[in-house]
Design a protein around this nucleic acid. Structure first.
Ligand SMILES: [Mn+2]
Ligand SMILES: [Mn+2]
Ligand SMILES: [Zn+2]
Ligand SMILES: [Zn+2]
Lengths: 153, 153
DNA sequence: CCCTAAATTTAGAATGATTCTTAACGGAGA
DNA sequence: TCTCCGTTAAGAATCATTCTAAATTTAGGG
């Protein structure tokens, strides 16, 4: 499953004449197998354990490359850094405004909804639409409990 | 119109016991009357022309305050800085991935759509939803022309 | 109107995520 | 295998944003 995904993603890069270096394969594989929405720093810290020669600059270079080829998306959670997510299945995100935790939301309506938004946007602004990101902000269950907001009635 | 909007926004702040300093009124008024999605730096440069004692730190402090009270929203356009928008009428944004220009999109379906998303999100993640932001990415008409992508068929 | 406590402003310093620079390295086509 | 040129690593540089501390100002009460 993840193997297929990796092969598929590498194929896309190869078809664009992007060099498949070990670092790029490693980082791409990391993102395919970790749906934790990590920052560049977090990816770097984890990969360093197996390969202490990898550089944070390469992590930044690579995630930017992957974003450019639409294999990965960028997310902000308010902690000042950018987080990354391999975008295999279309989904959107909820971010906890208290602790920054990011959760996935998969909805069947999502693609139809996206098409609607694209159409409205195109008609109203004449922009050529590439992609639509939905970001919901709120409080995660843990933070609701911590802040005494559970069952608030 | 803008006068009402300003009075209304100030009322909200006052009801939260937020001190109404001249700087806060000025910055709030600036955002109500300029729907250009400016960065803190842009706001500062403009306001300095009439009041050269205002500080960039105050601009940052104030926009954060306004965001906290949901009067203003934050936007990123890829230029590295945060942009701000007085959020009087609900709407969403398209960002040009080439030049960073941000355009507004107003859609009647918007609020119903938001409610749908909120409901799905709540059911699936148990997050307490505060707000939903939709961001579309694409190419503005000018950049389409510049890149020779107009009428691509 | 005047006082006072507490919040706010200012200017400049500090922070920290990201980008840049440069020399060494290594993919991949011929 | 050879060679070109894109990529990597390490550290320096950048720059948006936050922090600090002293001076100023707001808003409420007398
Ligand atoms: Mn995700
Ligand atoms: Mn707007
Ligand atoms: Zn949380
Ligand atoms: Zn553009």
């Amino acid at each position: 499953m993840a193997q297929n995904e990796l092969a598929h993603a590498l194929e896309i890069l190869k078809s664009h004449k992007v060099r498949l270096t070990p670092q790029r394969k490693t980082i791409l594989n990391y993102l395919i197998t970790h749906h934790t929405h990590p920052s560049a720093e977090m990816i770097y810290e984890d990969l360093k354990q197996h390969d202490d020669s990898i550089s944070i600059a390469t992590v930044y270079n690579t995630v930017r490359l992957l974003v450019d080829y639409h294999l990965v998306i960028e997310l902000k959670n308010g902690d000042g850094s950018t987080h990354f997510d391999y975008f295999g299945q279309p989904h959107y995100h909820v971010v906890c405004e208290n602790c920054g935790k990011i959760a996935d939301v998969f909805a069947p309506e999502f693609s139809r909804l996206n098409q609607q938004l694209d159409e409205i946007t195109r008609q109203q602004t004449h922009y050529l639409v590439n992609r639509t990101d939905i970001e919901v902000k709120g409080l995660c269950p843990e933070c609701q409990a911590k802040l005494g907001l559970l069952h608030n009635r």
